[in-house]
Design a protein around this nucleic acid. Structure first.
Length: 581
DNA sequence: GCCGTTTTCGGCCCGACTGTTTTCAGTCG
């Protein structure tokens, strides 16, 4: 492909491009297009949004987009059209034919493209409000293939459609799922139980919860779940599967299988869907069949009790759940050995935390004692700089006095190193919040964006580049500034930022707080590929703040980071050497 | 629409649950 000559903007984000193809697949589905074509569009959207490189930049370079799996000649052309014109001609056409309100109907539980097509084509309904009115008037039950129950179900779920797709944080998901798992284990008839689904894959957020149990008595397990104090109501119940709504609004599936199927069921219910499609296709190619009950050759179950057996039957090493997204796990598996991913126990230092000097709740010594109690060997105290006045940020004078306090604290505690650090704001005008001579005195400088996150990409990049080129900056903290599910990050050219960091020896943080978790999995993997040391830090504001470390490590695992990729797994002696820039 | 030691056509993962049906389609994960 030759570079594209155009005057159009090349600043479209991957998520925006992906959204075009997601919309296309919804619309095509309502129009009853070939389901595999719909899937191709949906998969292309997923590929684009889970790629660190900017597709806009790739188009600008004239790169061959068909090197991405699932993107062929046709989709490559469509991506070029979207990037260069900001439009997709077929999407525009489809939007003329199908009003947006019709697409909204897809969000109603139990309503899919086929039903939506009937509402639109037979009854001319074009919005959720019109659909609701029709249901109340009994018009839906009169349709061929519909009945009173479907109509009632739509009425029951239509008001919830607006919040459908809402996801909860991994922290909330784990708390709820693990409470229920522990409760099920109290039943004598339940032998094994575990959390599966996106929660087990440790995604940042979960749309629903999946719990698996093995038991000779599925009825007892389902009754137990139905009676759990966290449960609001039972939505579905069959012989082996029950779906409930929790009081928090989140829905949970419980699946009960026999012990001989536990591994296969775990594999199946852990997903992701895309990972499982590849697994099952692979089985098919080998003359086998995989379902939630096991791996089968003909009618013979040849594996199923453990996940290891299931993967082994397919000539695959066991794949850690965090990697099961059909990204690179099958390439890694092809080498025969999966990398040993970083673990919480590997972490020896925490390099981002606050004290009462700014907006923390504990003293320097209290934080150090708490860190030491958790087995950490070194920490950096990184209170806010003055720009963050709301958090009582430090100016040069207060910071120097604070550093004196940190040095004094070193005398009062053994077995843990204390670094004099600072979380220094990168100001809107691209200068640092503290002067170079102050930063030069620090052991550890975390540079961050807090304000002006809405600035245009050019200015955001100027700020990040200045910080990265500042010889006193060690690391960029929570690099995008996004808040999971609440706020998009700044408009960053990730490739450019990471390249600059690699060239200047600046590290990148995975902020372990479950509301941040950036760099995210995709970008952290890209950083690692460039040889950038990653630091997983908690940003603790209290002695309990260290609890979030697990979430950061999980994000690192999703990025397939090993211990070697994470700088704060080093011993203090090794880490000290990394500090020389 | 993608893909290919079954490569340019003919496939494309698999099963539970529900509701509307008398044998299956739609939805969901």
């Amino acid at each position: 492909m030759t570079p594209v000559e155009t005057s159009a903007e090349f600043d479209m984000k991957n998520d925006q491009i992906a959204a075009v193809f997601a919309q296309l697949s919804d619309l095509l589905e309502i129009q009853e297009a070939n389901p595999f074509r719909v899937r191709a569009y949906r998969s292309a959207g997923r590929t684009i949004s889970s790629t660190a490189e900017s597709f806009a930049a790739l188009v600008e370079e004239g790169a061959d987009l068909t090197r991405f799996s699932g993107i062929g000649k046709d989709l490559a052309k469509q991506i070029v059209e979207v990037v260069t014109t900001g439009q997709h001609s077929q999407l525009a056409e489809l939007k003329q034919q199908v009003p947006a309100g019709v697409v909204d109907m897809l969000r109603i539980q139990g309503v899919g493209p086929k039903k939506v097509a009937v509402f639109f084509n037979k009854l001319n309904l074009t919005s959720l409000d019109e659909l609701k009115a029709a249901a109340q008037a009994g018009e839906l039950a009169a349709l061929n293939g519909f009945g009173k129950k479907t109509e009632q179900s739509i009425l029951a779920n239509i008001d919830r459609a607006a919040e459908a797709g809402k996801r909860i944080s991994i922290a909330d998901a784990r708390a709820a799922a693990e409470a229920i798992v522990q409760d099920l284990l109290r039943l004598d008839t339940v032998t094994q139980t575990a959390v599966a689904g996106s929660c087990r894959r440790r995604r940042e957020t979960c749309g629903d919860l999946d719990v698996l149990a093995t038991s000779s008595d599925a009825t007892a397990a389902m009754d137990r779940l139905a009676a759990h104090p966290l449960v609001d109501s039972v939505l579905q119940r069959g012989d082996t599967k029950q779906r409930v709504r929790l009081k928090s609004g989140v829905e949970m599936d419980l699946r009960v299988v026999a012990d001989s199927s536990y591994g296969a069921a775990m594999q199946y219910f852990t997903g992701s869907k895309e990972h499982n499609v590849v697994v099952r296709q692979r089985a098919k190619d080998m003359g086998l069949k995989v379902n939630e009950y096991g791996v089968f050759r003909g009618d013979d179950q040849i594996a199923g009790a453990t996940e290891e057996d299931v993967y082994a039957a397919l000539d695959l090493p066991w794949i850690p759940p965090e990697l099961r997204e059909n990204r690179r796990e099958f390439d890694l598996a092809a080498t025969g050995v999966m990398p040993r991913l970083v673990e919480v126990g590997d972490i020896k230092g925490d390099l981002h935390m606050h004290t009462t000097a700014s907006d923390g709740a504990a003293s320097i010594l209290q934080m150090a004692e708490a860190a030491k109690a958790r087995g950490l060997k070194y920490i950096a105290i990184t209170d806010h700089s003055k720009r963050v006045s709301m958090a009582n940020g430090l100016d040069a004078t207060r910071l120097r006095a604070h550093w004196d306090d940190i040095r004094a604290a070193r005398e009062q505690i053994d077995g843990i190193q204390l670094l004099c650090g600072i979380e220094c704001d990168i100001l809107e005008d691209a200068t640092m919040d503290l002067a170079d001579d102050v930063l030069a005195e620090a052991d550890w400088v975390v540079a961050v964006l807090h304000y002006g996150l809405q600035q245009p990409r050019e200015q955001i990049m100027k700020r990040l580049m200045n910080a990265i080129q500042n010889p006193h900056v060690n690391i960029i903290g929570h690099p995008t500034g996004r808040l999971v599910g609440k706020r998009d990050g700044a408009d960053i050219n990730m490739t450019e930022m990471l390249q600059a960091a690699a060239e200047n020896g600046v590290m990148m943080e995975i902020n372990a707080h479950f509301k941040r978790l950036d760099l995210d999995d995709v970008n952290a993997a890209a950083a690692r590929d460039l040889g950038i040391p990653i630091v997983i830090s908690t940003d603790s504001h209290s002695v309990n703040g260290f609890d979030v470390l697990q979430y950061g490590v999980d994000q690192g695992r999703r990025a397939s980071l090993t211990k070697d990729d994470v700088a704060n797994t080093k011993t203090w002696a090794q880490f000290k050497k990394l500090l020389q820039r």
